[in-house]
Amino acid sequence: MAGWESATLRDKRTETARAATLHFAADGWPGHRAGQHVDVRLTAEDGYQAQRSYSIASPPEDDGDVALTVERLDDGEVSPYLVDEMAPGDMCELRGPIGGWFVWDVADGGPLLLVGGGSGVVPLMSMLRHRAALRSDVPARLLLSARSLEDVLYADELRTLDDGDEALDVTLTFTRTAPPDWTGYQRRVDRAMLEDVAFAADDRPRAYVCGPTPFVESVAASLVDLGHDPGLVKTERFGATGS
């Protein structure tokens, strides 16, 4: 799909109070790689068009299913429609898959270090699902920062993946409200947390950092400060979307 193609919403699932996963059936979808995104274009009756990029949540192995997890931005032009209004059977236009730099294939090897802020976990989830689908034993760690447990995308699935896989560790940190019995991290991701959770720089992990711009820049700077090779730290900024 080099240009814009129409796509039909097949199914929609609520993820959190602010986010939903939209499953599209797209004709001529050539398949994607974990970490890629698509551009979504909406056209109003008067011809006005709005366009945004959303990361693909589904793994390459889910043939014919393009799943996008979208978080509602209250002042957004596109996300409120996608999360709250668009219903199965409705159509929009998609362009993609897009991107080849912020991608990870099992064949790339590891260790794999994933650091996500809020909905920045979406492309990282595609990587973890891809890794699980191929039963890869590449050592992997996910550090996910969220405002509260209610804001964690894929919480149940992440717990299941973590419990069933010795080579995978999932660590959560809450920046606003932690559950009452929580004994884990309760602050923003910082250098000390990365030193605890991330692989040692000498292990040369492939790091993927995704989330709001300030989050991504702070995490990437801390990783480099800890001795990680800047060439192995890939970043994707979602902009100043809060979280």
């Binding site: 080099a2 995104h37 990029s53 993609g96 991107g99 970043t235 900024r237 100043a240």
Partner: peptide, 19 residues
């Protein structure tokens, strides 16, 4: 708002007809 090259990838694909 600072984004990165990933955000422009679709537009760049339009210009250069490749990833």
């Amino acid at each position: 708002e600072r984004l990165d090259g990933n955000a422009a990838a679709g537009l760049l694909q339009e210009v250069f007809a490749r990833e």
